[in-house]
């Protein structure tokens, strides 16, 4: 009788422990999933990206709800997208007649654009998230010059730290070599 009571006692505590451990595991997994998806989505552009459409030509069926974005953010995004398109690509280095020992002159032009972007972000704190989004896209764009991508990653790190968003960015999506160069700057 005493032995049976001891077994029941043991069973009770074992079940309590298992339940507690399961609950804890469930909670931690949930937290991890939430963080990963938050990091993944943090700097993604909303799917209903703004398209400029002439009002008179617009088909009422095509009109989508406006995203939650200010006119300053929209202007910045459009400018940033244009800058990204104009940034020098790796293939320019294959052109004949280039001095491969020194940085390409296009890098000087790109630095000037980045300086203007930095000026805008300094003067308009409300553009912080748009700025991070721009730098992330630049650092992820494989066809751009590696030096430029590394500088974008460096600026992303600096701005993210300054604005307190550094914990919400998935740093593992950037190649190690880019991190190495960015951290030296």
């Amino acid at each position: 009788m005493k032995k049976k009571k001891r077994h029941l006692y043991f069973l009770f505590w074992a079940l309590t422990f298992i339940s507690f451990a399961s609950l804890l595991g469930w909670y931690l997994l949930d937290q991890f999933k939430e963080k990963s998806s938050e990091q993944a989505n943090f700097l993604e552009e909303p799917s209903n990206a703004v398209q400029v459409v002439e009002q008179r030509d617009a088909d009422p069926e095509e009109v989508r709800p406006l995203p939650d974005i200010s006119s300053e953010e929209l202007a910045f995004r459009q400018r940033a997208n244009q800058v990204l398109e104009d940034f020098p690509k790796k293939n320019i280095l294959k052109e004949r007649g280039r001095d491969q020992h020194k940085p390409p002159r296009e890098l000087v032009e790109a630095s000037s654009e980045l300086g203007t972007i930095e000026d805008l972000l300094d003067k308009n704190p409300e553009l912080a998230k748009e700025g991070l989004r721009f730098y992330r896209k630049c650092a992820l764009r494989d066809e751009l010059l590696t030096s430029l991508r590394a500088l974008c990653l460096h600026n992303l790190k600096t701005r993210a730290k300054k604005t307190g968003f550094d914990k919400r960015i998935r740093w593992s999506e950037f190649p190690d070599n880019l991190h190495r160069i960015a951290d030296k700057l």
């Binding site: 890098l107 980045l114 000026d119 160069i181």
Partner: peptide
């Protein structure tokens, strides 16, 4: 120095490091 000047320094340094 201006942001443009600082970015030029950094871009050249990134090129050298790469």
């Amino acid at each position: 120095c201006s942001n443009t000047e600082i970015q030029t320094f950094k871009a050249f340094q990134a090129d050298a490091e790469s």
